[in-house]
Design a protein around this nucleic acid. Sequence first.
DNA 1: CTTGAATCTGACACCAGTGTCAGCTTCTAC
DNA 2: GTAGAAGCTGACACTGGTGTCAGATTCAAG
Lengths: 125, 125
Amino acid sequence: MRIGELAQRTAVSERSLRYYEKQGLLYADRTPGGHRDYPDTAVDRVIRIQELFAAGLCSAKIVQLLPCMRDKDGGPSETATPWLVQELSVERARIDGMVEELLRAREVLDEVISAASSPHPPTTP
Amino acid sequence: MRIGELAQRTAVSERSLRYYEKQGLLYADRTPGGHRDYPDTAVDRVIRIQELFAAGLCSAKIVQLLPCMRDKDGGPSETATPWLVQELSVERARIDGMVEELLRAREVLDEVISAASSPHPPTTP
DNA sequence: CTTGAATCTGACACCAGTGTCAGCTTCTAC
DNA sequence: GTAGAAGCTGACACTGGTGTCAGATTCAAG
């Protein structure tokens, strides 16, 4: 499929898709004229990449991680090296920390929101 | 307390503390010579600010949120306006979404990590 | 062949908090 | 009074994924 369709199906901008390719995260065949031609599996892959970006992993980490993932494309999955496993464990711990922080912040928001919804005036608890 | 001590006690750089002040997130008295002099309550406030930053809120949102928070400094808490409550609800939803994404990404990492720890070779599941 | 839509490359800007450096002033303790 | 530590302001850079624009090329349909 072409980049436009992939962008639409993944809700990721064409700009980002080209960036992913430059970072080695995504591969595309080329038409004789040079236009990108993505396999169907690219959709899942892009979504997965976005998930990992959202989790705060940088391109460099993701590019190492991808070949170790059990993709739908049935590509020859590599096994993570011990070194990579350790890197990923660090990321995992970081994610746990982020989740905790998010929940704490959510509590703060909830407190303010519920205080505003309660009938008590601000100065008299 | 001085900025150095506050930085040490909160593990936040002096640079960031000055930035917080410029954004209106943090207040400091000044010595006759112009050095910042923070009240003890600043420690809690800075930590709270960091939490909210970690949750993805920008300065502008935090600056509105802070006066509505039940601080240890016993300052006259304002009640969030309906408009602010709605803004915060949006943030809350965003936080929920982020948590979900983080957990999904964590699952991906766990899969790779456990695959590397299991005795199965990569190509034969 | 032609035309309009889609794609290509490359470059510049942005965000928003943070790091860092320079040059100067203030504080603290001897 | 003086030396060294600590603080001040202001400016510039960075991060790293993304938006956006320009100009050229390709694709697909008439």
